[in-house]
């Protein structure tokens, strides 16, 4: 059952530090649980947001904890949860990343490049909107349906 009416729009402000990941997952898990997701759904949402934020913190903000980004979360028609990650780093469309070739990655001793693939697999929709003006932020939109 959806409890979507209990929250409308929530925002978490986080900094470019990997210690923030725990707090980010907790925030997203609490909201997903409140919305009515199963434990499996809650895990998938938290994982996708963790992967997106890990990439952002490491590759865009370069672990600079003076820089901030936002995680916005809101229900969509009582049927889905929308999570938007807003940053002011260099625009990078994760949807351009090809699916990883595991054997090739192992041969190359590569430890990265899996996050985007996970996000695409566990979410129902993933869209990316690069900032188009100096005052705008890049926006990664993740959607997970309740059922």
């Amino acid at each position: 059952m959806s409890n979507a009416s209990t929250f409308i729009h929530e925002r978490l402000t986080a900094s470019g530090d990997t210690t923030e990941l725990e707090r980010i997952r907790q925030f997203v898990q609490d909201k997903a649980r409140e919305f009515g997701f199963s434990e499996q759904g809650i895990h998938k949402i938290a994982l996708a947001v963790d992967e997106a934020c890990s990439n952002l913190i490491r590759h865009s903000y370069h672990l600079d904890d003076t820089r901030e980004f936002f995680i916005d979360i809101h229900p969509q028609d009582d049927e889905a949860l929308v999570i938007e990650i807003l940053d002011n780093g260099t625009a990078f469309d994760p949807l351009t990343v090809p699916a990883p070739d595991l054997k090739q990655y192992a041969a190359q001793h590569r430890k990265g490049g899996f996050g985007v693939h996970i996000i695409r697999m566990v979410m129902d929709a993933v869209e990316y909107f690069p900032a188009e003006a100096a005052q705008q932020m890049n926006r990664l939109k993740l959607v997970k349906k309740l059922s």
Binding site: R25, E51, S54, H109, R110, K111, G115, I118
Partner: peptide, 17 residues
């Protein structure tokens, strides 16, 4: 209790070696 791809990546680094 939890693993993200950063954890999986650790095993990728060393498996071939």
């Amino acid at each position: 209790e939890y693993i993200s791809s950063a954890g999986l990546g650790v095993f990728m680094v060393f498996i071939e070696e």
